[in-house]
Amino acid sequence: MTILAVAEHDGTQVRSGAYSALTVARDLAKNSGDNVELLVLGSGLDSVAADASRFAPVIVADHPLLANPTADRYARIIANVAKARDAVSIIANSTTFAKDILPRAAALLNAAMAGDVTGYSVGNGELLLRRPMYAGAAMAVVTLSGQPQVITVRASAFPSAGPLDQPGERTVWNVDASTLPNHSEYVGLESRPTLRPELTEARVVVSGGRPFRTSEEFENYVGRLADALNGAAGCTRALVDAGIAPNEWQVGQTGKVVAPQLYVALGISGAVQHLAGMKNSRVVVAVNSDPEAPMFSIATYGLVGDVRQIVPELIRELGK
């Protein structure tokens, strides 16, 4: 039987988070003796399939009707592949791509799902999955009944899988266009271009909170410090709501979850919903003018002061 890892890609390469999902898939397969296959969906997938096959045998669902990741079609294909392969589990990295599509696929398969899994163990032949609840204030241990089990994992919680010695086989999945749903029409994607590393993959993340009142100010302080550290820039919900930063930069319960080596929180109070997205960072620095700010209680290093004064000093010190 098969453990199916669904890999998100950028049209050329598999996104790195998928390799964390693959690590989990391989580990589960090691215990159960199942095969691991990667599933890629899209249009014009030659380069993606080649990239993916370095890591595992690949099932390639390549069709113009799959050019954009619309949940209705992708979920249908994933469910069909899972049935054909008699999949015991379907695993993907926990991104909005998987959060949109996999629950729908689970429903088509009459399957249970656990999202944002950060750890697991096997007890009494059952897979015990650990996942955060209550904005990360609690960790739940759950089991899923029935098959397949649909699981999304947090990439930050698992190492990336390495390539195979020999590339895996590539299997073409025949997409029957006449059976594909036509529920939504893709219009486009709007994002704020940035040359900085992707938030969830960066070694260093510098995030800003409410004290930054304009996009320029955010750029001048948070952006510049991020650049000085070769890091990504993130923010709190306060700045996204105010239109100062785009939503894809939000860290937290309802934004992205990051766990970099270093997280620098500039003028962030430390609400639980924000902590949910960053508290597993290895080293946390808090800079805040309020010595009582809750952010300090989870920080490794704390510096009390005005971010407008401290950030330029930090940039100067880093240049020394």
Binding site: T96, D100, S184, V187, L189
Partner: peptide, 13 residues
């Protein structure tokens, strides 16, 4: 739609 990649727009019936 708010996605990790940015703001995606779709049309649905």
């Amino acid at each position: 739609r708010e996605t990790d990649r940015g703001l995606e727009t779709i049309l649905i019936r």
